Simulated scan of single mutants.
Amino acid sequence: MTQFALTPEQRDIQQAAREFAQGEFPKYAREADEAEECPRKLYRQAAELGFQGLFFPEEYGGAGLGYLEFCLVVEEFWRADPGLGQALGSVVFGSDLILLYGTEEQKQRYLPPLTTGEAIMGAAITEPDAGSDISAARTTAVLDGDEWVISGTKIFITNGTIANFLIVYCLTDPEAPGRHGRHSCILVETDRPGFQATKLKGKMGIRASDTAEVVLDEVRVPATNLIGTRGEGFRQFMEFFNRTRLHVAAQGIGVAQGALDKAVRHVRQREQFGRPLASFQGVQFKIAEMATRVEAARSLLYRAAALVDAGTVDHRLIAMAKWLAGETGVRVTDEALQLHGGYGYLAENDVERFYRDAKIVEIYEGTKEVEKQIVARGVIGRPG
């Protein structure tokens, strides 16, 4: 059985991320939520401290570490503030596809700028009529000589208005017999003619993270911008999700731990009926349940991430971790707000923001229903 007790180096990374997030995020968190953007200063600081591209090999500017180390950073970022945590943690969103399937030239060109703070990227997958069913995506890419001509609309795209480049999931082979062999992944620089991104405002949570609608109107990119093999886009993204869902699970654990921290602080300080709230058995039971849920989700994630770093990608275990972490984030933040009473309902209290931020973990990178389906198929197989 793979062990996942943290090494001294991993604990140092965890502590460094905690000190940075706890020291810097509170200065900007509330304003960033209201303005719906992350200060550029934080992007630069996170890169300078080496938090971007931790799992990139050293030859591409990374630290040569693993997904577990990156999860530790994401967890601490979300523990301090989910909105800023998502903004900074998503700078390299989509890079897994380049690492897994990109050419050496693509890796050398696109990965190093992410680690230095010179670039931000993203992955454009979801469409207005293709959410969980990505095989229904209609954005087309037609090969015209030595260029791809891309047209279509993408929605809910992380970093859509601030990214330097996106990996776009495109329909390249509509006549292929199998629906899972019709799409490809193509890298698109956002300064190309025909590319337009519109920021989506008024999100319920993680408002500091950029989310956009992206329209591609006959955007031309070199044929060499194809990532991996033509027609393998669906399979590539399934492997991609097996990595990124680890990060999202870390988000759920982080927001839960942050809310738990705030709840413990509140019940120690707040008095009712002449006694601290923490002295009431009912409150103690709530705190015990919250802490146990967080620890259970964390243990499951660390095991799943450690296995990936050891070369074993267990999609069932990853789906378990992502689903449980999302549910834990939602349930623990709900209980934390409840323990704050009316004070928790006010925007001036950070637990209100954590409550709003937590829900997204059950939605993106595979809804909780999708994760449960993956788990069920792993346990009982495909019926029929």
Rank of each mutant, 00 (worst) to 15 (best):
Q3E: 12
P8T: 07
Q10R: 11
Q10H: 07
D12K: 15
Q15W: 04
F20H: 06
A21M: 01
K27C: 10
A32W: 04
D33V: 05
E34T: 11
E34Q: 13
A35M: 09
E37P: 01
C38P: 04
L42I: 10
A46G: 09
E59P: 06
A63L: 14
C71P: 02
C71I: 04
E75C: 02
R79H: 09
G83C: 01
G85C: 02
L88N: 05
T103H: 03
E105M: 10
Q108E: 15
R109M: 07
L111P: 06
L114M: 04
G117Q: 05
M121P: 00
A123L: 15
E127F: 05
P128I: 10
P128V: 11
A137Q: 08
A137P: 09
A137M: 06
T140K: 15
G145Q: 13
D146P: 02
W148C: 07
F156K: 13
I157V: 15
A163I: 04
N164L: 05
F165M: 06
L166N: 03
I167K: 07
V168K: 01
C170V: 07
R192P: 01
P193C: 00
Q196C: 08
G202F: 06
I206E: 09
S209I: 01
D210L: 09
A212M: 08
E218D: 14
R220P: 11
V221M: 07
L226S: 00
R230D: 11
E239S: 11
F240Q: 14
T244L: 12
R245Y: 14
Q251T: 11
V255I: 15
A256F: 11
L260Q: 06
D261I: 02
P276V: 11
K286V: 06
V308D: 03
T328P: 00
T328H: 00
V332T: 00
D334C: 01
E335G: 00
G344P: 12
L346N: 09
L346H: 12
A347M: 10
N349M: 06
D350F: 10
F354C: 09
Y355W: 15
R356G: 06
K359S: 12
I360C: 08
E365K: 14
E369P: 04
V370T: 15
